[in-house]
Design a protein around this nucleic acid. Structure first.
Lengths: 370, 370
DNA sequence: ATGAAAGCGCTAACAC
DNA sequence: GTGTTAGCGCTTTCAT
């Protein structure tokens, strides 16, 4: 083929589809696109297998051959095709991570933990954000299966036990974060949501408050995590001889806007409320806003608590009392547990990490004179 | 093969490696693992290609055959292998998204936009979080290349122009968010960072303030985005006949903790400061904290501004004046632009979306009596 | 220490 | 409408 581009005439003999022509100011670079293992092998006069040995660091290859191959790889701009590699080896070195909502700062921290542990082991992480939609949860799990990831880490979701179990069953290995599944195929890494919420509630009751509102997070179905926290609340109330009026429990989406609306309504319906216990920090942010709007002093009149200890909980209108959950660590441990399972040597089936009550300004003694 | 498990004797004739035996309380389920297209075809007595037609919805297949195949797929639990599919078709239907920091709520919103647009087009999104590390940025771009994604969307990063250009060059299609690259291979979707920051500064100056501190975000290298915002600040100061004292400009990591430290120091060094202009909302959160610690009233004594309008900026100690950036939209447009490029019909090379000054409580008239 | 051949699961380009 | 034949780019046997 002959073509004239500006002042340059190119003579190209190879397959035209595989040629990449780069024109910069002073020079013309003709490169082959889609360079394959075979191309590298050909350039070096060795077999494909030898090149494969070099890029995978398996078996011995003479130092000389190796460096020559490395050089050719660099020169040709070769990048191994992961798809082909996975297909042939039946291993993708990718793990999947399904999270319900990236916009909740709780999950990005888990992501970071998973990534950290994965990178260390030479794995890559494919993150799927379900965006609070249970249809998307299904889609994510299916996509990851089609991608033939080596394993999946799933954060607490709305999928029912049965469906989730059968989804996980289909994966080579799986780990659940903050969700239990007795007799399920998955490893479990979690904190004790029930008792942690209990500690929050006890802390609030200890300051002499009795009329307690609860802001729950649930749309259609209640997740395991919503359930545990709510039960923790109820159990602690009961343990203190207090009745829980169902009208003091409201639910909303785990987002600032929605919880603000819900908190407003609750405060209007029950102006005598002395504390707002929230499912998580995002909801607590809305609760604090609602109090601020109404000029309700926190904690002098109303105490507010969150859960998770997201990065921003200390800079809210009032620094938030919450439960510090080791998010990064949760991610790291989940990944490690997954690798054990991928390798076929699971040592533990469940790990419970510590979560600690973190007392800041949004709780404390009630000042009656208000 | 014959094996005795408990009371059950199994006679299995197929390849033992491909058998999955599920023992539940009452029954034994023998399933084939790793079901392939060929298995489905065999079960139905049709050719592989016909099955392929059904799962891809290409060409016509008689309704009867189709429903039979669908049934067999369901019964066998078949899941197409994306790796094999990509390898054969040279299309992955995956796009890559590289973001610098998931823990900054700015990026999750972009993610959602990209995902939204991608899902609509049948694409999946592989997110790579560089975790504020330029080495990780490289790794991400390389991983995506090895994965043979159909295109990449890259959010403003620290990689130098030359290196980024050559990375993008290697991809089939690419779009940059909030970063320009003249003559580069990538499409561009951005907001006008320079002028938006200018508007923020003008707004602050208009309230009569003159001693302005600037909290920049940069570690080793300044990103395009850091640069634009800083320049916007400097240009507006100059346009108002004000000198910028370099010691009023400090830089820190874009995280609450670090900006708190930096803001403290700046306020100590220059107690006469009247405003803190921040690179983004996360840094502004730290600035507000520093003011709160010192009992400095905002905005009566010091005004504080952010940039991005992250979800939490309205619930900070003082509701933050900031620039509302259409994050979701940025993601959607970037994805759409990428698809045009993947399809080989790019219509636009650069799109500039509107960003608006959002005035909340952290700015306003200075109250001299303080 | 290196190579040859087969095949991973799928799609593409043709047949029929 | 449906089947056949080749690969896609790599790893795996098994040779040598």
């Amino acid at each position: 083929m002959t073509g004239t581009f500006g002042l340059v005439t190119l003579y190209v003999s190879a397959d035209i589809k595989n040629i990449l022509i780069i024109l910069s100011e002073k020079n013309v670079i003709v490169k082959q696109k889609n360079v394959t293992l075979a191309d590298v092998a050909r350039a070096d006069g060795v077999s494909a297998k030898t090149v494969s040995r070099v890029i995978n660091n398996t078996d011995y290859v003479s130092a000389e051959t190796r460096s020559q191959i490395l050089q050719a790889i660099d020169q040709l701009g070769y990048r191994p095709n992961r798809m082909a590699r996975s297909l042939a080896s039946n291993r993708s070195f990718i793990i999947g991570l399904v999270i319900p909502d990236v916009t909740n700062p709780f999950f990005p921290e888990i992501m970071r933990g998973v990534e950290h542990a994965a990178l260390e082991r030479g794995y890559n992480v494919l993150v799927y954000n379900a965006d609070l939609d249970d249809q998307r949860e299904r889609q994510g799990l299916t996509l990851l299966e089609e991608t033939r990831v080596d394993g999946v880490i799933v954060c607490t979701m709305k999928l029912a036990d049965d469906e989730l179990r059968s989804c996980l069953q289909r994966h080579r290995a799986s780990v659940l974060i903050n969700r239990v599944m007795p007799g399920g195929p998955a490893g479990i890494v979690r904190v004790d949501l029930f008792h942690s919420m209990g500690r929050v509630v006890q802390h609030v009751l200890d300051s002499g408050r009795r009329k307690i509102g609860y802001l729950a997070a649930n749309r259609s179905v209640m997740s395991y995590s919503s359930q545990q926290r709510l039960w923790g609340f109820e159990a602690t109330m009961k343990a203190n001889g207090l009745l829980v009026d169902p009208d003091y429990i409201r639910s909303c989406a785990a987002a600032v806007e929605d919880s603000l609306r819900t908190a407003r309504q609750l405060l209007t319906d029950h102006p005598d409320i002395e504390a707002l216990i929230c499912y998580n920090d995002m909801i607590a942010a809305g609760a604090l806003e609602a109090c601020a709007e109404r000029g309700i002093p926190v904690p002098d009149q109303v105490a507010v608590t969150g859960f998770d200890d997201i990065m921003f909980s200390s800079v809210f209108k009032v620094a938030l009392t919450t439960v510090h959950v080791p998010k990064f660590e949760l991610g790291v441990r989940a990944a490690q547990m997954l690798f054990e399972r991928i390798d076929g040597h699971p040592t533990e089936s469940e790990v419970v990490l510590n979560a600690e009550l973190l007392i800041r300004q949004s709780t404390g003694p009630r000042r009656k004179e208000v």
